[in-house]
Amino acid sequence: MEQDLELVKRCLAGENSAWEALLRAHTSKVYNLCYRFTGSSTHAEDLTQEVFIKIYQTLKSFDAAQGAFTTWLSRITRNHLVDHYRRTKKDRVTDSIEDKVERVEERPSASLDPLAELESREVRELLQAALALLSPDMREAVILRDLQELDYQEITQVLGVPEGTVKSRINRGRLELARIIKRMKGMKG
């Protein structure tokens, strides 16, 4: 947290190396959030780039007193994702669960063990397909809590809703995910 603050200060002083360090520290986090939300690596990369351009332009507005840099970053990312979701609402079609399972993309991971890689891919695909079927409100809450590992307070700041709402969305999201995953496993046989 202190390190982020220092990097932000150096960025504002015009140090390009600090900006690069900030990018290296947080690109993966933003990308994962975008990917979990969109389910497409191409869209996730485009959105990550757009988020960081926005961050770069509004870095002066970051106030450390209001929360950590990661929380601010997550809030901007989330807002951008919501905008993107609204913008592309017309383009989306309702897919069936089977389509979702088939559509999940292959992505390389750090693991080199083929068995572990296969297992990890299955988990990823199942989770991504199930997440895609959640409503956006519940999806973002679950992603922030279970995949981005933010605490309730941070999620409250990111989403801008009361803590009770956050807890409710997370709980309902998890219950819904459990139902979807159970159905998917039943279909796969």
Partner: peptide, 12 residues
């Protein structure tokens, strides 16, 4: 929750 914990972060 276990599934989410098992999911490795994706690499851009």
């Amino acid at each position: 929750m276990e599934l989410c914990q098992a999911a490795e972060p994706l690499q851009p």
